[in-house]
Design a protein around this nucleic acid. Sequence first.
DNA 1: AGGGCCAGTGTTCGCGGTAACAACCTCCCG
DNA 2: CGGGAGGTTGTTACCGCGAACACTGGCCCT
Lengths: 333, 333
Amino acid sequence: MTSGKQASLTDVADLAGVSHMTVSRVVNKTGPVSAATRARVLAAVEKLSYRPNSAARALVTGKTGILGVVTLDSTLYGPASTLYGIEHAAREAGYSVTITSVGTPNTVAIAEAIETLRRQAVEGIVVIAPHAAASKSLEVVPHDIPLVAVGGGQQAPVPMIAVDQSDGARRATEHLLALGHKTVWHVAGPVDWLEAQDREAAWRQTLKRHRVRAPRIIRGDWSSRSGYAAGQVLAREKDLTAVFVANDQMALGLLRAFTEAGIGVPKDVHVVGFDDVPEAAYFSPPLTTVRQDFIEVGRRTFRQLAEQIAGREPAARDLVAAELIVRESTGPR
Amino acid sequence: MTSGKQASLTDVADLAGVSHMTVSRVVNKTGPVSAATRARVLAAVEKLSYRPNSAARALVTGKTGILGVVTLDSTLYGPASTLYGIEHAAREAGYSVTITSVGTPNTVAIAEAIETLRRQAVEGIVVIAPHAAASKSLEVVPHDIPLVAVGGGQQAPVPMIAVDQSDGARRATEHLLALGHKTVWHVAGPVDWLEAQDREAAWRQTLKRHRVRAPRIIRGDWSSRSGYAAGQVLAREKDLTAVFVANDQMALGLLRAFTEAGIGVPKDVHVVGFDDVPEAAYFSPPLTTVRQDFIEVGRRTFRQLAEQIAGREPAARDLVAAELIVRESTGPR
DNA sequence: AGGGCCAGTGTTCGCGGTAACAACCTCCCG
DNA sequence: CGGGAGGTTGTTACCGCGAACACTGGCCCT
């Protein structure tokens, strides 16, 4: 019974004894069709297990119903969550999502990824690459296709959605200051990551506003390993009482280093992270951190893209508020 | 200069003063074209920034160059890593990947996801859903499209690639037994996850082979929270000295519970996890665990699919070996 | 009674490519 | 010097679908 080829509109039409146009009307619910005819057509569709040919449809309508996402091929919590947020919103609206990952977010790789997606005739592109180089490459990208950046930094050259990094970092820093600390140290993310820059800048500014001197910065690369190294360095600082770490993974490494160095958290030092990964509540000790609603980011990203596809020119920036989650790492001593 | 529409083969042909067929030959490097003509065509292509229309091509060739992946919309380390492994291998071979995520892997959701992908005219489908229900739904899926399951359990109804769960669980259990423990407790994953079943079965079998009685099982849901709960339960067991936890996230929660209960790891109890998430080396204490090479899984998955697309009937199962990574959680007391 | 109007249906055309074949030109050979 | 070979180019026929328009018949209105 597997007759080799997929059934076409015409096949269905022949079986139902109507023209292919009538079948098209039934399938797409466009134009009037009598109940009797519709039933016959539907039966034929069922019998042949007809599936519309997306290529043919795309060819004639000029719309593929596909969105492209450029993402890092990492399993970093943020990008992965955002991807699923976008995919979910897109699917609900009848779009499908194809991904192209880049190992390292340099200008060339991003440009290639975008070109790859364009060859797929995607209707719009999301770039999840909160990275300076990525942002740079967006400047030179042709602007003849709907495009949205996720986490593109303060002055992205294209419309952008992101969690408000400054807001989050400010909350974290002020939380620590409110606990009475003289100052707050910072373990930053990689310089070339915009989110790292934003968090660092907000931390610095918050200290300044409170007339507190900023200690020197320790820099990591988001990994637990680098957080561990940072922790070893900080463990040698005499008057260290509070640390704001730019993400949870690094905070984990830092906690480990502190444990090994005999530094108690929260007894001797208070620590705040960023991201609120699902595991953060079970670190030792449970980590105070800044939660980012990536699902919401994904949703708004899709909405933004949909607006552009519809030909409207939506707001250039959209920030999602961050939320401080207080746990034991900044608890009573 | 943005002339509204994308240039077509004919536009290029007109500009270069040749027929559209010649342009096609140049673009696809099929058939002979004189050097002079090729140069003229290429110049025209460049000038108009011509991009082949994938829909038109797909319509006539019947090939879309798209692969579909059904995945969980979770940020679980395993599925996410596998996805990127597949995407990478696929892109190298000129395929692009579209994803469809399912919140919970029940039969209906999987079937819908597959149908959604088929409407996209994907050339092959990967189902990353190491779940009993997913496996079930694969039994009833039409077999007229190349399909591969990742982590589909021992008797998947379709070709399957996976890390050898039994092998990994056996290594973990034997490692603990070799350290002299009377027995090994097990915190298992959800019953309806095939990997959880495999790990549990291998643990039980290994104990049996060593003529050791298996303690009762504690069951979690992969989350740190459930691992924490399991840890609280186990903390009340008198003769507990060794625990094999079915994944690293749960192991983290368990470590936390043990810490709160005053149980030392590795001093009082030895703990082994599964997955080797990047953070595992920085747990307190660093976690002995079983590493799974998801990139390799992704690579082989794509290869499998490519074979099927090429019309060959490849091996039904392909297992990737697991590796035991020994760290402090099973270290000297 | 004649003329819209409209629901229901069919016909034609073309989207942008590739496959298949035809046509032309050169060159070389007997 | 005729003819076949082969390299180079063009022509034509679809692929499956939807847009646009044409057609049919009944019904209502004047």
